[in-house]
Amino acid sequence: MAATTEAKTRSLKTWQGINQALTEEMERDPSVVLVGEDVGCPGGPYGVTRGLLDRYGSKRVRDTPISEQVLVGLGVGAGAVGLRPVVEIMFFDFAMIAMDQIVNQAAKFRYFSGQSMPLTIRTMCGAGGPNGAQHSQNFEAWFCAVPGLKVIMPSNARDAKGLLKAAIRDDDPVLFIETLGLLPTRREVPVDEDFVLPIGVAETRREGTDVTVVAVGRLVDRALEAAEALAAEGVSVEVIDPRTLSPLDTETIVESVRRTGRLVVAQEATAPCSIGAELVALAAERCLPQLKAAPIRVASPFINVPTPVPLAEARAPKATDVAAAVRTVMEPA
């Protein structure tokens, strides 16, 4: 699925990009349905799905009981008999209740049957609201350990729209992870209704020659901010957003790290067994001769997410943390 003309754009908030992707794909394909808790009547707890129930009716846009296993099971069963379901798990934390259906069922269907499972599971991660330790977590790496599942984590309105459309059109189960803190952020988004971004392709958001920063989700904007500040210090930072975490675009990342010789990874998740850990392993396996410094993971500390927003924000890594890590890898060996 190649990206199409991007000539005409419009500034959208991330939630609007998601809403447009859902609307356009439901308009385009009558087999697309949306099920989830509060997705219909109220339009989602943060308004992401507003307007869809009025437009497509309660057959295709359906509020479900609080039944996460059945919620994903609705998607697996419907996907098996001809629909192209989009299932919303309100907070990523709630995916823990549906793990069997995601990991043991959706991700195994093709392996057992040889048939497609065109299921998209949307969920939302991260701190950013007064939601606390059971409504703010980042589990993206857990799902990257599962064969048969794709994992997408967009960092902005443009990618959210283009990649959600790709996920819905894709014949594999896709976990599409939205980030609460990014819902109100803006980026220019192509107006073209066939603007679809390819799954599995990273985007180099800023080119640079001294350090590669691979940033995920909410940390992409912060990495770009750090890169801007560091440019004033004479440090040239390349910022890569993987966008798809599984399958990961390893070639783009390896090429960049081999060229710069330095790697910093930035994520909202905690560090142990994370995407950052995977990227550092990738650099160790494939870029060791070129590495000029030990890679650094910028991550949330290995503690639970507090409920008060100022404390939650204090826990999350900031642009200054990314900049400090870049300065460290730039120090002479």
Binding site: V76, G77, A78, G82, Q101
Partner: peptide, 9 residues
């Protein structure tokens, strides 16, 4: 849960 999905479809 999968049965509910097939029936819903």
């Amino acid at each position: 849960p999968i049965a509910t999905g097939a029936a819903y479809a």
